[in-house]
């Protein structure tokens, strides 16, 4: 029973979405089923967020309680979760849900600071705390790429050597200094790299992988819809 009902649900949901693709959404409800399902998913996802919050609080609160190593950072994590969430769910105006009660307790002057609009507390946290941290993490890629390239890019065999040479040519082509260097050999060299490497080999490889992956995804979806693949249910 624990397996049968989910399989039936998966079959019906999958089939409905496939069938809906072939019907005109302006003429019949079934054509709109995909959009409807997407909306349902957003709603279910919203409720599932509570699970996430419970998990993050439980794991970190336990560490704080036991004063285990790095407990202070875990405490900061829990505080940050609520620091970003609370201002975003507070009523922004008197007309918002619960707004009349909220602003009968708190002064109306705090209206601008709530919500997610510009000048809000959330916005401030985003612009001056979250965004710089995200940018820093992304920038770290440059360091990691350098160390990975140094360690892993070895001309071990013919294929690896070809790959290495191509990579060097593309790296040179993508920057002005490198492009100027390439032009010392031939004015057409950057153009050739663009045409043959990026527009030729690259496109062929990308398409091969994309087609293969799309088929794999379709095959897996089919196996799930038909109940052949049950591993995702832990079976």
């Amino acid at each position: 029973m624990r397996t049968t009902i989910p399989i039936i649900v998966a079959f019906l949901a999958g089939t409905l979405l496939i069938v809906s693709f072939f019907f005109n959404p302006e003429k019949i409800w079934i054509g709109d089923a995909k959009e409807l399902a997407l909306q349902w998913m957003t709603i279910v996802g919203g409720f599932a967020l509570v699970l996430g919050v419970v998990s993050i609080v439980r794991v970190n609160a336990r560490a704080v309680q036991r004063k285990s190593e790095g407990w202070f950072y875990k405490l900061m994590t829990v505080i940050s979760v609520f620091a970003m969430a609370i201002p975003a769910i507070m009523p922004v105006t008197k007309e918002s849900v619960g707004g009349s009660i909220f602003y009968s307790i708190f002064p109306e002057s705090c209206m601008g600071y709530l919500g997610t609009g510009s000048n809000s507390f959330y916005d401030w946290l985003f612009n001056y705390v979250d965004a710089p941290m995200m940018e820093t993490m992304f920038a770290m890629l440059a360091f990691y790429i350098a160390s990975a390239a140094y360690r892993a890019f070895r001309a071990r065999n013919t294929e690896a050597t070809l790959l290495l040479l191509t990579a060097i040519l593309v790296m040179l082509w993508r920057v002005p200094m490198g492009e100027a260097f390439l032009r010392l050999f031939s004015d057409n060299l950057p153009g050739y790299i663009n045409t043959y490497v990026m527009g030729g080999f690259n496109v062929a490889v990308q398409r091969g992988i994309i087609i293969g992956a799309a088929l794999g995804a379709a095959s897996m979806s089919l196996r799930i819809i038909l109940g052949i693949e049950r591993t995702y249910m832990g079976k």
Binding site: I209, A213, L215, G216, S219, I228
Partner: peptide
């Protein structure tokens, strides 16, 4: 790479039923 990801769970399971799906996919390819 790519489709190998989708094949992995079937491959790990060693179940002929799941492996059949992989062959079907190869045929369409």
């Amino acid at each position: 790479m790519g489709e190998e990801l989708y094949a992995a769970s079937s491959y790990l399971s060693h179940e002929p039923l799941l492996l059949g799906g992989l062959k079907g996919q190869d045929f369409v390819k």
